[in-house]
Design a protein around this nucleic acid. Structure first.
Lengths: 218, 218
DNA sequence: CTGCATCCGCCTCGATACTG
DNA sequence: CAGTATCGAGGCGGATGCAG
């Protein structure tokens, strides 16, 4: 008489998805794992308020359902399976929608630099990656990541850019997400000293267009 | 001292989205409204198990947050705002992912014909809409909808196709979703008499390719 | 120290009854 | 028909315990 997980009981793709990742905290766990493998303690730290039992329970279920793998050895971490990685698009598109609701951050809301990496991925509009081959590097607090555009195909990766990036943007996590939420323009952030940019003006424009922060120039 | 809704308190697009549509039943309400305006009673009927108080509460919050509009007059219904309509992509991409988990439908799971409409929208791969101009009509139980491809741009709409559809597919809701979940091929469904197709073979192939049910032919 | 399991108070959920 | 009120059951959140 094991326990039956609460489920919607509808023969429908959305209901089936929500039966798996619809419970509280689950998608935020996926978000963390989309940024790379994470240890139990790292997840706890990245998800303030989750409660250790709940995290353990979620990880167990996600593993049983084939969405994540358990740490193979000490000092490894939980990681997404191929099935789990297929949540990238759903998660990014939800995150993009959620930016509509980000208001001014109050002191009691958490802001983490690596969420900026997610924000960037959500903001990239591949349609706007014109025929360019260059990379843009972002330094948000102590986290570094970059976008590499190859033959018009943009890819976001952790770590510094290979070779010489066309643009380097340095800022703090809060400013970064505020720009993503369009509460702040890059120009305003530059003017107030909260953002530093290096690189030639044309490349800065191209990167801003790619991220939907600027209308394409004819 | 009004009541503070439970929220994640993270300055992140995904967390903000989940604060709005992350609670139980909310995304299923959105799913229904993506198919058109719905009355209170229609929503209750489409969401077995929700409980009337919870539906009322969800509708109230979604309205306050600007995601839906309330019925303007008797015999109208709740409808999505522009912001709400922007949930189409997130919802469809989640539904697509959830198809991975659809197992054989047991007698106790609900299957509704109009969910097939959602499944079709989730399955359409615009990349595969080659330069064709034609429409495909689907008759799932008593629900009729169609895909119209214009200059390679596919659009799914309720109701019968305008003009003469290139393909007409007739089936029941369960078979339809099983095909979407790739538990059943159209060929098998045809052979077992659970699916009827009219239209010429080439058009049937093109529609199957568009829905990702068949590999493109060179 | 990491990775959980157990316990407990509270809040959300789900079902039923009831009202305009 | 379209909700509101009520209440038991269960999921959640926080603290604590404990094994490798």
């Amino acid at each position: 008489m094991g326990h039956v997980r609460r489920n919607y009981g509808q023969y429908c793709g959305l209901a089936a998805a929500l039966d798996v990742i619809g419970e509280r905290w689950t998608l935020l766990i996926i978000r963390e794992l989309l940024l790379g493998p994470r240890r139990y303690g790292e997840l706890l730290e990245a998800l303030p308020g989750i409660g250790t039992n709940l995290l353990a329970e979620r990880l167990k279920v996600l593993h049983e359902l084939g969405v994540i793998t358990r740490p193979q050895s000490r000092d490894q971490g939980y990681a997404l399976t191929e099935l789990g990685h297929e949540l990238r698009e759903p998660v990014l598109s939800m995150a993009r929608w959620g930016l509509n609701f980000l208001d001014a951050p109050t002191p009691d809301v958490e802001t983490r630099a690596h969420w900026g990496f997610l924000a960037v991925q959500a903001m990239i509009d591949p349609e706007r990656a014109t025929e360019i081959d260059e990379s843009y590097e972002f330094r948000v607090d102590d986290v570094v990541f970059h976008i590499t555009v190859t033959h018009g195909k943009p890819v976001a990766l952790e770590g510094p850019a290979d070779g010489e990036p066309a643009v380097v943007a340095s800022t703090d996590a809060r400013t970064f997400v505020e720009i993503g939420a369009k509460r702040l323009t890059p120009f305003e952030a530059l003017a107030s000293g909260r953002l530093q940019l290096t690189g030639d003006t044309d490349a800065i424009v191209r990167s801003s267009v790619l991220l939907g922060l600027m209308a394409p120039v004819e």
